[in-house]
Design a protein around this nucleic acid. Structure first.
Lengths: 223, 223
DNA sequence: CGCGTCTTTGAGTCGCTTCAATGTCTGTGG
DNA sequence: CCACAGACATTGAAGCGACTCAAAGACGCG
């Protein structure tokens, strides 16, 4: 990450909540690193419905898939006030030349991202509303913990219930009713600004997708 | 692709239809290259429902995301009789050392895969059954064309309507009814073994996600 | 020719959406 | 410090899209 930042040109940008960093269809020739705050990647369909693909937390790389296509496939929007730094694609090119191990790690991170998308895809396509919502909240917590080891079962977030609905693929009204069901069953606490996982095991079983464990054995990577 | 094959040890394997190459949860220390036939990647959830994440066609790399985790996240199953060749992860490691440009191209392919998953995710979460099915069939055709430029609007496939249902996230019964709606509206022909896109524009508009164009400008990659 | 796989059809039910309205919080200006 | 406005959360009722259950037809393979 520090190495990546060394390729930037001090190109830091501050975003206010709801401000768009990059819209679908715009040409894009690089990606961004999220330094502070939360952002999200979304796709708006021809039928007008919006879906939040992923929520980004500090340390995440934004807009990487856009490197492969001429026009940005997704819209990147700030969920809270946020700070990002732009990284030109030439930085990635250099990385593959001078730091093959880092490049390979970046490759592995992309595979992890694929797995997260695969899990979300399976859930959205084959799970009920309450299962989907359980999965979404669980994934948020998992990622909050990963970015901040030592975090307990409570994490803070800037999400509205409408954001949650767009993440879980349902109506805000039904998201509200489903949150209440999860509350009544003693699985979570959900309030403005923060959430708590009360029963991680039950929640994960409800979500229906197992926790993934990242490979630690990396001897096959270049040095 | 030829370079990748040079890393294999003649480790070719033939699969019969419905045979599983690699099941969810199994440890896996490499990936595969599909030489002939079609396979698919699927996830089965705790509630028992199966979802087909992606259909693979000859030339596709199978099980790449598994490199990042200790246990295979998905099940790879043959949709027709198929031939694959195993590629150990050490091959990938070497690639990043000796062929940075190829490694970078592999990285870009992973980003394309991410975009395909993002599109599918948005569709499954935010589109109606007929829109989802239109999108699925369109993506199959797009990929068939990409693997075989010069192909017209008809492509052959080994998919049953149940496979189609698992791809589009719906019941086989409803998939059947939805296929018939698409037929009645003159958008497609769907029969055992082959399919034809009758009205690509209308189908794409129905699907609600624009066609993506791959970057041709690759000057920023290492040589 | 017959059996298994796949496709098609119909009826009843339920999960989720839509529409409409009320209640509650948060920040901001007077 | 209070009043107000806008954003967000909550509630209820009606409607529809997709599922479930059940059964019959068609295809293709041995």
């Amino acid at each position: 990450m520090a190495l990546l930042q060394s390729f930037e040109g001090g190109n830091v940008r501050k975003l206010r909540r709801h401000e768009v960093l990059r819209a679908e269809g715009e040409p894009a020739s690089g990606f961004h690193l999220l330094l502070r705050g939360w952002t999200a990647s979304s796709i708006t369909m021809a039928n007008g419905k919006r879906h939040l693909l992923k929520v980004h937390m500090p340390g995440d790389m934004l807009g990487m898939p856009g490197l492969a296509v001429t026009r940005s496939p997704d819209t990147i929007v700030a969920l809270s006030s946020a700070v990002v730094t732009a990284i030109p694609r030439e930085g990635i090119g250099r990385l593959f030349e001078v730091a093959p191990r880092i490049a390979a790690l970046l490759f592995l991170i992309s595979q992890e991202e694929r797995i997260m998308l695969m899990d979300r895809l399976a859930m959205m396509a084959a799970a009920s509303a309450i299962e989907r919502l359980a999965g979404v909240i669980l994934q948020l917590h998992d990622r909050a913990v990963r970015n901040n080891p030592g975090l307990g079962t409570t994490f803070s977030h800037p999400l509205t219930q409408e954001d949650l609905a767009d993440l879980a693929g349902m109506t805000p009204i039904y998201a509200n009713k489903t949150v209440q069901r999860l509350r009544e069953e003693g699985l979570i606490i959900w309030e403005r600004g923060s959430a708590t996982i009360l029963n991680p095991e039950a929640l994960r079983e409800l979500a229906g997708i197992p926790a993934r464990q990242v490979t630690r054995e990396l001897g096959w990577l270049p040095l």
